[in-house]
Design a protein around this nucleic acid. Structure first.
Lengths: 346, 346
DNA sequence: TTTAGCACTCTCATTATAAGAGTGCTAAAT
DNA sequence: ATTTAGCACTCTTATAATGAGAGTGCTAAA
């Protein structure tokens, strides 16, 4: 949405309404605004301006004579043009450092990140695991575990480690496995995981048949295993605390929200769509395509390792959320997450 | 608690009160009971008996003249002596099969199990990961990943696979790693993971010094890594749906519950304590040691692989929960989980 | 020992009432 | 041409009052 020319006085009042409503969760009256603006305008003047803002669709009345609350359009204008840039408090920064102090494996990092987002924002936090497909292979190890089963350990340059169990139609001897493993490592090192199958298929036509023949009848097994890497995993934390917000005292709103919590995949879809686009994105209420999410807002961003977008994270809550603060939380947490992942790359 | 001699008429009435209250969530009156018992007794008779039951502490009044609700003692008696043995409906059995149809790695199994418990019981489900310490080592693989870092893959006979990253004070060559790996596999195969450190320490005094010397300065690293295996991981699902139960409309009760949900570790503690004891355990309300859990009940059981208790699972909800049904859910799900884990062992 | 009858208690839903917050409009002030 | 004060009006919310209903406990009869 382009910036509409709201004269600065109007903007100040809209901003005050939005911020006050975010804080207090109840309709904002003209007197309150006058006070917040140090009586630069009288309540009567403010009422006139509010009538204009309402006509233009930035705010509404819940009933004839209550204060005003922002509409989605109002929040959108606030987020795009009025929102101040906020930083985190030293306290919050300390909390982040503290949380990440003892992390080891990736699922722990994801867990802690989503908890952090939830706790700092006092809404729900969601984090999508770094996606393997966009990482380059550093090393493959094949370990014979039983009969026809082989454990394949994939290690990527981005520091991700993934175990896959392959069930072949017939057993391989240890020396055969070693041969295949060496072949894989020689041929596939540096290749993006998403490309591996394609790459192997091409090899079929190439020179080194002796090893390829060893596993070519098991190719479909490999293909299927690599498909597993496509699945997006994610963490979601804080559902319970967003339920206690006053907007969900209403039984209908609550039921909708609960359905969404059960079907978290819908949220994943929203957040995954954003992944391709750089920067922090905000989705406000009705802007969301899913019926269940139309009373919610999301603040999301993607995160990178070695310059590649590998995942996304964000905060989910009612449309009445502390956008400025949450913007800053999402920004900071994603940056710190990037640093941590960066340090772990191989 | 021993069976107190409640004459069978009393028992019938207590059972009816418990079951009706579980279903309806509101105090049960004498007329309702009379109807449920096909007017074998008049409401007046039932009132007399209820007065006795109340005096003995099995039921209470919320206020002078409402119906009765069971006390924790009442629920306890019901669970111990009155509860019928219920099975699952074919529908439910189908749902379980369906859920487990496509499972691959252990975290997926745990995830699905907790979701299953939550969905079937309409309460919250909790599952503790199989504990590695109680598994015997089948194979160790050491993979050089970067500078001083080595990936250690532990494979157990129970089919669990665990990756640990070891950061050594100095780098090892590939051939050194292989030597150490071979040594480990030769010496440690079949040893319980909890015993490995102790076992290696004993080796210090033994004959084969040449390999032991290679890593003995890194022993503390190993020790620390193995300590990681002690941590209990778990899944918890369904918190949102137990919040909607009428008992949590009260703001105070809700707050307590939310704190518990944030600090899920408390639940873990309860469930982990039960692990040592065989069979299905029921904890009712005040029986729980934690303040926050005193209005909740847990139905838990442990599960086994190869005869060893390796984990636990259960259902958490308000004291007014469908004990008979949930008992059956916990029993069936744990059995099926055991089968699945059993099939995966190596 | 069981049951019918009845007075009594307490909740819950409904209604009435008053206080309060906030608006919109009009007319005066700047 | 704006801005503001004043005021009537609207709608919510809290509180109290009321009555119906559910269910009890007790007494006395079956």
């Amino acid at each position: 949405m382009r910036r509409i020319d709201l004269k600065s006085r109007k903007e100040k009042i809209l901003g005050t309404i939005v911020e006050t409503y975010i804080e207090e969760a109840k309709p904002v009256g003209s007197r309150t605004i006058a006070r917040k603006l140090h009586f630069k305008f009288s309540p009567a003047t403010i009422r006139n301006i509010m009538a204009d803002l309402e006509e233009e669709g930035y705010i509404t009345h819940p009933y004839t004579s209550a204060g005003r609350i922002p509409t989605d359009k109002g929040y959108r204008y606030y987020v795009d043009y009025l929102m101040p840039e906020e930083g985190l408090t030293p306290q919050e920064k300390k909390e982040i450092i503290q949380e990440y102090k003892t992390v080891e494996d990736i699922s722990e990092i994801m867990d802690k990140t989503s908890r952090l987002l939830a706790r700092l924002s006092e809404e729900a936090g969601i984090v999508v695991y770094p996606c393997l497909k966009k990482s380059r292979l550093k090393h493959i190890e094949l370990i014979d575990i039983k009969d026809n089963s082989v454990l394949m350990v994939l290690i990527t340059y981005s520091g991700l480690i993934k175990n896959l169990i392959l069930r072949f139609p017939h057993p391989y001897s240890r020396s055969q496995l070693e041969k295949i493993g060496n072949f894989f490592n020689a041929e596939l090192e540096g290749v993006y995981l998403s490309e591996i199958c394609k790459y192997l298929l091409q090899k079929r036509l190439s020179d080194d048949f002796s090893v390829y023949n060893l596993f070519k009848d098991a190719f479909s097994i490999l293909e299927e295993a690599f498909k597993k890497l496509e699945e997006e995993r994610f963490c979601f934390e804080g559902a319970t605390q967003i339920i206690t917000q006053p907007e969900f005292e209403d039984r209908v709103a609550l039921t909708k929200l609960l359905r969404l919590m059960e079907e978290k995949r819908l949220l994943l879809e929203i957040i995954a769509q954003d992944m391709e686009e750089e920067g922090i994105k905000v989705h406000i209420g009705e802007e969301n395509n899913f019926e269940e999410a139309k009373s919610l807002s999301l603040v999301t961003t993607n995160y990178h390792v070695e310059g590649n977008t590998v995942g996304a994270l964000g905060v989910v809550g009612p449309t009445r959320m502390a956008y400025a603060h949450i913007f800053s939380i999402v920004k900071n947490v994603s940056e710190i997450l990037e640093n941590i992942l960066q340090e772990r790359r191989l």
